[in-house]
Design a protein around this nucleic acid. Structure first.
Lengths: 173, 173
DNA sequence: GAGTACATGTAAAGGGTTACATGATTGG
DNA sequence: CCAATCATGTAACCCTTTACATGTACTC
């Protein structure tokens, strides 16, 4: 149940409303732990009931700001230092690679080239995020930067692989 | 709904029982599209009812072998050449990186070093698979090899990143 | 005044995980 | 004969996705 810990982590940074959290799930966390609006509000209610977060303020338009409680901080820490639950990585894109032999050679190569193109686009996007940001060097931002760098390297590696794979497919199929 | 297409792809290769498929989901597809036993049998029933697969033989211990039908092959092809549904990548490991600032510097560095260790282990494992296999060069195997190579490069890249990140954390936090 | 962004809530459906449940066959 | 493996089925629970539903405040 990592959505719960994602919310706790975000609230450990600063108090936020469901709407604020939702925006962060759509932006900075989009490639790491995407979450929908309905999920966020549901989990906030559950966390609040469990005493891991609490309402710390209200604002216009029915806005409710939540802050993390001491119990919430303890729960977050337990999860952070606990045993790493495994990836359970599911990739429809890679699954198709397994079945590329069911297509014609040119179709398969085209698929891999499209895969390469997308990864290059993502790579360029992530690099632009890194290069466009103002790096103040506070701990929160350092961690964001590390995660961002992961994405940059991963998209680079995936893009390179896909170009190579398209060549291999043309040669060996 | 990619489980459905994973099963169709495997059955396009050769007729198999639920048990056979389950084994493949635990081995070759484990890092790409893992699936549980209960899922496999359920989906087989649904695919059979939809006419995308059919029972092609029976064996000892109540074994039922399914084969893909022409309708199933058409469905598989539609999915293969259709628009790529996006990743929806969820990584608890990377999520923690986002919140590493909540730990002490040494704890964070230790986490990243453990991350590096795991990726190196996976890298070694995947390389041993590649180097231990008998490569006959048939189309099915070429595709498996391409996917395997993806995993090798990804684990390499992740491991390198984690080592680098541990250093950065020590320096910049 | 209209459109956009802010703000929250819930219900239904789909897919994945865990657990229970059962039985047949093979190999040592 | 006993254990491991082969083989299937299903129920409950949890999480995610999609969709519907509603209302407020700001800006042009």
């Amino acid at each position: 149940m990592s959505l719960r810990h994602a919310i706790l982590g975000l609230l450990a940074e600063n108090p936020s409303s469901g709407y604020d959290l939702m925006k962060r799930f759509e932006t900075s966390l989009a490639f790491v732990w995407p979450a929908k609006q309905s999920q966020v509000y549901g989990e906030l209610a559950r966390l609040s009931e469990a005493g891991l977060i609490e309402v710390t303020g209200t604002g216009a338009r029915n806005r409710r700001e939540y802050g993390i409680t001491d119990a919430g901080r303890a729960e977050l820490r337990d999860w952070m230092i606990g045993p790493g639950s495994e990836a359970a990585y599911r990739s429809p894109a890679l699954l198709r690679v397994f079945f590329l032999w069911t297509l014609q050679r040119e179709e398969g190569a085209a698929y891999l080239q499209e895969f390469a193109r997308r990864n290059k686009a993502r790579h360029a996007f992530l690099e632009s995020l890194r290069d466009g940001a103002e790096w103040r060097g506070d701990p929160v931002q350092v961690c964001e930067w590390l995660a961002l760098e992961f994405g940059i390297r991963a998209s680079q590696s995936s893009g390179d692989w896909a170009e190579w794979a398209a060549e291999q497919l043309t040669e060996h199929l």
